[in-house]
């Protein structure tokens, strides 16, 4: 058992937790939270992979792409939040109704 392994396994669990939330929760703000949790779980997994040789000098390449990933996740979160607020203004609901595309007309 090493530090890297602990956090990689933590990352795998977070992916599971986030996935569960993304599937089961209807409120869109919760699904946005779940999306961010899955994302950081994946980053921990990648970071754990980069630290396997000991925490002294972890691989900088995963670190750099994780920073990029964090910024990209924020960008998508910002759009999702703005879209959610607009959706609530338009429909009064923070959830999506059941799937039936042809009704959308």
């Amino acid at each position: 058992m090493s530090t890297a392994l602990v956090y990689a396994l933590c990352g795998a669990s977070l992916v599971g937790v986030g996935l569960y939330g993304f599937i089961t929760r209807a409120h869109l703000l919760r699904r946005i939270l779940a999306f961010n949790i899955i994302g950081s779980g994946i980053f921990l997994l990648l970071g754990g992979a980069g630290s396997r040789q000991g925490a002294v000098s972890p691989d900088p390449v995963p670190q750099a792409v994780i920073i990029t990933g964090i910024v990209v996740a924020l960008s998508l979160t910002a759009l999702a939040v703005a879209l959610l607020v607009r959706l609530v203004e338009d429909t009064g609901r923070a959830t999506l109704p059941g799937e039936d595309a042809s009704r959308d007309a």
Binding site: C10, Q63, V71, L74
Partner: peptide, 18 residues
């Protein structure tokens, strides 16, 4: 957690952005 992994740059990004 990122501090413990020795990834201080990521820890900073997570603290500030995440």
């Amino acid at each position: 957690a990122w501090m413990r992994l020795g990834a201080v740059d990521v820890a900073l990004a997570e603290a500030a952005i995440g």
